[in-house]
Design a protein around this nucleic acid. Sequence first.
DNA 1: TATTGTTATACTCTATAACTATA
DNA 2: TATAGTTATAGAGTATAACAATA
Lengths: 142, 142
Amino acid sequence: MPRTDALDLVLELVVLLGEDMAQSLAGDGLTVSRARLVWLLHHTGPSTQRALADALKVTPRNVTGLVDGLAQAGYVVRRPHPSDRRATLVTLTEHGAQKLTAMDAAHRELAELLFAGMPDAQYAAFVGGVEHVVARLREALR
Amino acid sequence: MPRTDALDLVLELVVLLGEDMAQSLAGDGLTVSRARLVWLLHHTGPSTQRALADALKVTPRNVTGLVDGLAQAGYVVRRPHPSDRRATLVTLTEHGAQKLTAMDAAHRELAELLFAGMPDAQYAAFVGGVEHVVARLREALR
DNA sequence: TATTGTTATACTCTATAACTATA
DNA sequence: TATAGTTATAGAGTATAACAATA
């Protein structure tokens, strides 16, 4: 007896969450792809484009484009790598860093919005359920 | 105390589910956008491009491109509308209909994969939790 | 006058391949 | 010879605007 209703509900959640994030990011002049890159920079510090490409699982060429857009929007700058003249270090600007700090806060507010008011027992069961599903998906994708 | 861990877990689920679907669809020569269109056709029958644009919440121009690609891939054909000569009715081909029936089965199998083995109590709590989160998101997006 | 779908144009994300500069 | 990042090229998804055919 497949539990397709739960899957459909999860798919709806995916759609709504995607809309919410895209809408919020658009307000900051960001796209999902660009946000992923600056989010990474924010949490790991200045990185070479090569490292970003590996972490984001996209091609180096793609990173060039994303960094171009982010630089034009004032989020990041390219700095020379101190010891390897082939490489560049992508670094958050002051403005970018401030925006990312604000995004951290927005992230916490979203968590608050979604889960505040949920009874502890249900919250625990929900987390357990998501972990279960994530584990199954990881196996399936391996 | 924001429950950011649950949000991060849900975001991971979104990523993994997206990868799983994209991988599966690529095997059928489909993209996510094209799959959404044929999925709609499969469940509502032949439709005008205008109706598809409204249902998918994209522009008519976008639908033109998606239908072009799906027609070339043999999933759909454009037929004249019987009473309105401005409009076309996008219809699944025999091949497309068979593929969609197979996708229905794959959908049930995915539900089976994700939720089989989950205790009834946890399943119920999980569904309740997702419903809670979906409701909150609906409010936020309104 | 309004609607359906198209052509024209443009931007973003994505990829592969060839090339430059450096290691 | 290998690596970092670029230019060149291409396809998909998305949008707006102008237009043709029809209602």
